[in-house]
């Protein structure tokens, strides 16, 4: 069962198409990372899912309800933390929690106290006087204390120092351990997301480039270095980031399937020394984005 489903979801701002026919599913119980560079359309997508923005076309359902009809009942099951969100800065941390609590029937006072201590938030201090990291932790606390079924995080790590990031991730994992829930997190801080996500969706220029389980994704990508005798071998369609310098050829294999793929390499580069290394999520992201943009740059040139 999918907690989020979109079908050909698009959003235009004047002549700019921020999101183009996005079709995406987020399975229940997954932690899905929506990755993409700046301007890829991640935040716009999340805002449409949260009904903060109306789609130009297409549709989306969240928790089984069309996103444009998200009501109080559904929102009481959703947590949303965004770097762009305007928090009531006149309130103290305590007042924020006191304000939010009555809206959520599932609010857990014990979890509130636990997270408050874990995040080391000063209860009596106004939100307007908090650092950015503290502010994000306060926002996360107010979104975790009711154990939402769906947690949507929009660039939560942006501008946070490593300690705060650690606190933040521990907070998310804290609730995650307590029951089945779904997390959709958008970020370009891939290393942090890598620790959380079990599904990856990659967006670039408003389009969804791929979506699959993180393990499968990392399993099928390899960075390959081939040292050979200088034969003129061209790239296969599944190879990206093709580079050649003398007898050294580098590329990224996008369909690695173990021994079968290694046999294919040996057939293409007979007698060559082949070194294949697993790739981090960050390396995969960079390789994919560059590969996508290279043909566009070449055609533009």
């Amino acid at each position: 069962m999918n907690v989020i489903e979109t079908h050909a979801l698009s959003r235009r701002f004047g002549r700019t198409e921020a999101v183009h026919e996005l079709t995406l599913e987020v399975p229940a119980g997954s932690v899905t990372a929506l990755l993409g560079s700046n301007g890829a359309g991640k935040t716009t997508t999340l805002k449409m899912l949260m009904n903060l923005l109306r789609p130009t076309s297409g549709s989306a359902t969240v928790l089984g309800v069309p996103s444009e009809r998200l009501g109080e009942r559904e929102r009481a099951r959703i947590g949303y933390v965004s770097e762009n969100q305007d928090l009531p800065r006149w309130m103290t941390v305590r007042q924020l929690l006191d304000y939010c609590r009555p809206f959520y029937p599932t609010w857990d006072r014990d979890l509130e106290r636990k997270l408050l201590a874990q995040f080391e938030l000063p209860e009596a201090r106004k939100l307007g006087a908090l650092s950015r990291g503290m502010l994000m932790k306060a926002a996360l606390l107010s979104s975790l204390a009711y154990r939402p079924q769906l947690l949507v995080l929009d660039e939560p790590f942006s501008g946070l120092d490593p300690l705060v990031r650690e606190d933040f991730i521990r907070g998310v994992l804290e609730v995650s351990d307590a029951g089945e829930w779904t997390v959709l997190v958008s970020s370009h801080d891939i290393e942090e997301v890598e620790r959380l996500a079990d599904h990856i969706a990659l967006m670039d220029a408003g389009r969804l480039e791929l979506r699959e389980p993180a393990e499968a994704l990392q399993g099928r990508f390899r960075r390959v270095e081939v040292t050979h005798g200088g034969e003129n071998v061209g790239p296969a369609p599944e190879w990206i980031g093709w580079e050649r310098a003398g007898t050294l050829t580098r590329f990224v294999e996008t369909r690695f399937a173990g021994a079968a793929t290694e046999r294919t390499w040996q057939e293409r580069f007979p007698g060559a020394t082949i070194n294949a290394q697993p790739m981090s999520l960050r390396e995969i992201f960079v390789a994919l984005v560059r590969a996508r943009r290279k043909p566009a740059n070449e055609s533009a040139a």
Partner: peptide, 21 residues
């Protein structure tokens, strides 16, 4: 303006508060 109804970043918009309420 404590809870503005223009823009997309107001706090209440992501909370279980309906526009009618």
């Amino acid at each position: 303006h404590g809870d503005p109804v223009v823009g997309d970043s107001a706090f209440w918009m992501s909370r279980p508060i309906s526009p009618a309420r």
